Simulated scan of single mutants.
Amino acid sequence: MPTNIALNKLRTRRGLKWGVPAMLLSVVYLYLAALLSVLVDGGASKWLYVVMIVCVWNAFKFLIFGPVSLVAVARVRLVERRVQRA
């Protein structure tokens, strides 16, 4: 949910430029998933696997959004040039 809000903000025209730096958030999520895995292996509750899966899912969302934002920026700039020439 917070990642969906962040991605919605990044999908705006002003937010597209932050797509590639936002990919760095995936590193944080993957680190958190690894930490949770270590905790579960150390004897913590198995329910932490659910949180770990959510962290991995969020990491993949941010990883995929980086290249998608580059394509979206290129498309928006192309449309803006066409409008400017017309």
Rank of each mutant, 00 (worst) to 15 (best):
M1V: 00
P2C: 06
T3E: 09
T3Q: 06
N4K: 07
N4H: 10
I5D: 15
I5S: 13
I5P: 02
I5W: 12
A6G: 07
L7Q: 03
L7R: 04
N8M: 11
N8V: 04
N8P: 02
N8C: 07
K9H: 14
K9T: 13
K9R: 13
K9E: 13
R11S: 15
R11N: 15
T12V: 08
T12C: 13
R13Y: 07
R13A: 15
R13Q: 14
R14K: 14
R14H: 10
L16W: 00
L16C: 02
K17H: 10
K17Y: 09
W18L: 12
W18Q: 07
W18K: 06
G19H: 00
V20N: 01
P21H: 02
L24V: 06
L24C: 08
L24P: 00
L25H: 08
L25K: 05
L25V: 07
L25F: 10
S26E: 00
V27W: 05
V28Y: 07
L30K: 08
L32K: 05
L32S: 12
A33D: 00
A33I: 04
A33Q: 03
A34S: 12
L35A: 13
L36C: 03
L36E: 01
S37D: 13
S37M: 10
V38Y: 11
V38Q: 13
V38K: 10
L39D: 01
L39H: 03
V40M: 05
V40S: 02
D41H: 14
G42L: 05
A44D: 12
A44P: 05
A44N: 09
L48D: 01
L48R: 05
L48N: 02
Y49T: 05
V50H: 06
M52I: 09
M52H: 04
I53T: 11
I53K: 08
V54H: 02
C55R: 02
C55P: 02
V56A: 10
V56S: 04
V56H: 03
W57C: 09
W57R: 08
W57P: 00
W57G: 10
N58S: 12
N58L: 03
A59G: 08
A59P: 03
F60R: 07
K61E: 11
K61Q: 15
L63S: 12
I64M: 11
F65I: 11
F65Q: 01
G66S: 14
G66D: 04
P67H: 08
P67R: 09
P67Q: 06
V68F: 03
V68Q: 03
S69F: 03
S69E: 01
L70Y: 06
V71W: 04
V71K: 11
V71T: 10
A72L: 09
V73Q: 07
A74R: 15
R75V: 07
R75Q: 12
R75L: 13
R75P: 02
V76K: 12
R77Q: 15
L78D: 10
L78I: 11
L78Q: 14
V79E: 15
V79I: 14
E80F: 05
E80S: 13
E80A: 15
R81D: 09
R81A: 11
R82Q: 14
V83Y: 05
V83E: 11
V83Q: 10
V83W: 04
A86T: 12
